[in-house]
Amino acid sequence: MLVYSVRRLIQSIPILVASTFVIFLMVASSVDPMTPYLTKKPPLSAAQLDSLRVKFGLTKPLLQRYWDWLTGLVLHGTFGSSTQTNYHIGQQLGYAMEVTLRLVVGTILIALILAVIVGVVTAVRQYSKLDYATTTIGFLFLSLPTFWFAVLLKEWAIQFNEATGTHLFDTLWESSPNPPAGFLPQLGDAAQHMILPVVTLALLSYAAWSRFQRASMLEVLGSDYMRLARAKGLSPFRVMFRHGLRNALIPLTTQVALDTAALLSGAVITETIYSWRGMGLFFISSIQMADPNSVMAWLLVTAVFVIVMNLIADLLYAVLDPRIRLA
């Protein structure tokens, strides 16, 4: 399996290089760091603009710019310099990743628990009223535009706060501007800020996963080994959990691994609405600030996430399902 993993990773290097090149061309043609400087009032002098172009490296040929970027990355591990003042791409990206990670871990935890419970219950009670109700609710969540739902949630949260005179829900940021002193209060503050964004993302993510879980649970329930287990006279509980659920979790695990990559690259909309300065907002603000190297850095990290999570998904599959052998 180690050999397999190494081979997969080596295989993905050319993809990564190819995609950075494609993306570099795209970024170079779509993100112009000069944009914010063109409409200054009072205007910058022509000499100042020329000097800026040199500073941003825009006077060099495109291929050389790519080469510089690539060698900088490979040899020095740097993402290149930002066109924003006082902005260290690596540092900012690290911070954004930490914020997103907080959001993603919370989301996956809640969504996964919900998905498994709903998936199993609906599979076991297939075609019951409960099944139809949860299925419909699940589909409803699948069909909600993220920002529409987030705006509504926020609205309700504030009405709740006002009606009860409490301050249970925070509508902005990953923590208070002036967090309370002490570790526990700080943890509480962070947790309080997590409620709304995590609920938003978890509800929107669990639905797809629960459908997935339901399907695989149904497949397992109808399989011959379950029939055998029941025929052997094992207790229904044991049959369901030892034999049923364990096997039915395999496909979900891989699916979650794949979706995690997407979540890690930032829930752009959720982060925007709740002003969480994670990966999604990092990307949006890089575009808005017309900062090509930041955009590149973000895309690179995202691509690595996808490749690694893909590999993990495959490995998990092989580990969990003895029938699959990786070669």
């Binding site: 006002e162 301050h167 902005l172």
Partner: peptide, 22 residues
């Protein structure tokens, strides 16, 4: 005693934040 200036990504969320005391 203290002034804090804090970034809000989406300007349309500001009134809500003011209302909520953030």
């Amino acid at each position: 005693a203290t002034m804090v200036f804090k970034y809000i990504a989406d300007a349309s969320q500001e009134p809500t934040a003011l209302q909520n005391g953030e």
